[in-house]
Structures are given as structure tokens and as C-alpha cells.
Computed example of a mutant assay.
Amino acid sequence: MSAEQGLNDAAKKTARVFFALWPDEALREELHKVSGLLHAAHGGRRMNPATVHLTLLFVGSLERERLPELLAVAAGIQSPSFDVVFDQADCWRHNRIAFLGARQPPAGLFDLVGALERQVDQAGIGFDRRPYKPHITLVRNADCKKTAPALKPIVWAARDFVLMESNSNANGASYKELARWPLL
């Protein structure tokens, strides 16, 4: 067996997964327009509109045999729907990401993230334990020395959440929806 084949076999045994809010087509188009404005201000590389999302909880690499556990955990989440107003364009110098943020994220967003963290933790599944900072990445390799433009607020009506699998390829990342759950 070649080293490359061994790596491919190992990759098939695990999935790189995360929970997210996924935009509908109208919101995706709106976010793509904003990415154009951020790109004009900061340069860099615009995100593929098909991959733009709001991460809730990044699990990372998980054995595929454990996916049913993760699906069951998410199915047990009972959280109300909410709206997030993204009203702040900004740029992080440390990783050169231009993004949209929310000056006043709703409690419902943090409640959903907290419920996911607690349930995933209780299931004994590891995840990225950084403090949650809601943002939508729109441009990578941005020149953050420039001032972000003022933008019209965008309202994201969160009515469901998804579990996504991330796969890397020559063109960047591609995502596959594994499951979707409604918010109440």
C-alpha cells in the first residue's frame, strides 16, 4: 500500500464536521454583494458564495462511526428561532480575514451554541473550545490596514441549523450537508 493510499483510507474513516447556520439563496446573494464591497476595500480572495455560512460549533475530525452519535445529539436540541443583524464590517489582522459581525448578537444565537457545546461535550465528542465570536468570513488574505466600509445591516433569519462535512480540494473547501434541524 502506498503512503498516499494509506492517507486516503484514513481520511475515509474520519469526517471533518461542523454545525452552522446556512444561508438561503436570497441571503447568499446579499452576502456575495457585501463580499464584493469588502474585496474592493481590502483586496484578497472572496469566498465562494456556495460556502459562506455562520459556524456555530466546529467539531473537526470525527470518526465516521461516531457520526450517528453526533446526529442524535443535534436532534435533541430544542432551541427557538432568532434573527441576527449583521451590522459591522471588520478585518482581523492576525489571520487577514474580512468579515461581517453583529454588534449585538441575539441571546438565542448564544443559547443554541451553548446547547450544542453542552450536548456534544456530554456525548464525549471533542470540539474547538474557543470563545464563540459570531462572524461571517467573506474575504481571505485581506489587507486589514485599510478601513472597512460602512455597510447596510443584513438580517439573517435563523430558522434551522445544519451539520456540514468539509472536504479540501485543489479549489479550496467544499461542503456537504449531512443533516438539518429546525429551530422552534
Results as ranks from 00 to 15, higher is better:
A115C: 04
Q78P: 02
L151T: 11
Y132C: 04
A72T: 14
T147W: 00
S79Y: 12
V73N: 12
F127Y: 15
Y132M: 09
L116N: 10
A148D: 15
D143N: 14
F161L: 03
I77F: 12
R103Q: 14
V162D: 01
L62C: 12
Q104I: 01
G108N: 08
V85T: 15
H94C: 00
G101N: 05
Q119P: 00
R159H: 12
G76K: 10
L163Y: 09
S166M: 01
I77M: 11
N169F: 09
W92A: 06
Q122W: 03
R130V: 04
E177P: 09
N95W: 04
N95G: 08
V155K: 13
L70A: 08
D143R: 05
P68R: 04
E165Q: 15
P106L: 01
A74I: 03
D121S: 15
E177A: 12
D143M: 04
R96T: 09
Q122A: 15
G126W: 06
Y132E: 02
A74V: 08
V84Y: 04
I125F: 01
L70G: 08
Q104Y: 01
K145H: 14
G108V: 08
L71Q: 11
P134F: 05
A102E: 09
A102S: 15
G101V: 06
Q122Y: 02
R96P: 01
P149W: 13
R159V: 12
P105W: 09
L178C: 11
R129Q: 14
L112Y: 06
A157C: 03
L67I: 15
A170L: 11
A102H: 07
A157E: 13
A148Q: 06
L67C: 02
L109K: 00
Y175W: 04
K133R: 14
P105F: 08
R96M: 05
E177I: 10
N141R: 15
A107R: 15
R96N: 13
I154R: 11
E117P: 00
N167K: 14
S166F: 06
R159M: 02
A158P: 09
R159L: 08
I154N: 05
R64H: 05
S166R: 01
F161R: 00
A179Y: 08
D121W: 04
F161G: 02
G172F: 02
G60K: 05
Q78L: 14
C144Q: 11
F161N: 03
G124I: 07
G124R: 02
A142T: 06
A142Q: 05
R159S: 14
S166V: 03
F99P: 00
A142F: 04
G108C: 06
Y175C: 01
V73D: 12
I97G: 02
V139R: 02
Q119H: 14
D160W: 02
S79R: 10
K145W: 09
A150F: 08
D121I: 00
S81L: 11
L70E: 07
V162H: 10
L67D: 05
H135L: 10
I136W: 10
Q78K: 15
V139L: 08
S174N: 11
D128P: 01
L112C: 03
H94K: 15
D160C: 05
W156C: 05
G108Q: 07
A173Y: 13
T147E: 15
E65H: 10
N169E: 14
A123R: 04
P134L: 07
A158L: 04
V85D: 06
K145Y: 09
E177G: 11
V162K: 00
R64N: 09
G172D: 08
P134Y: 08
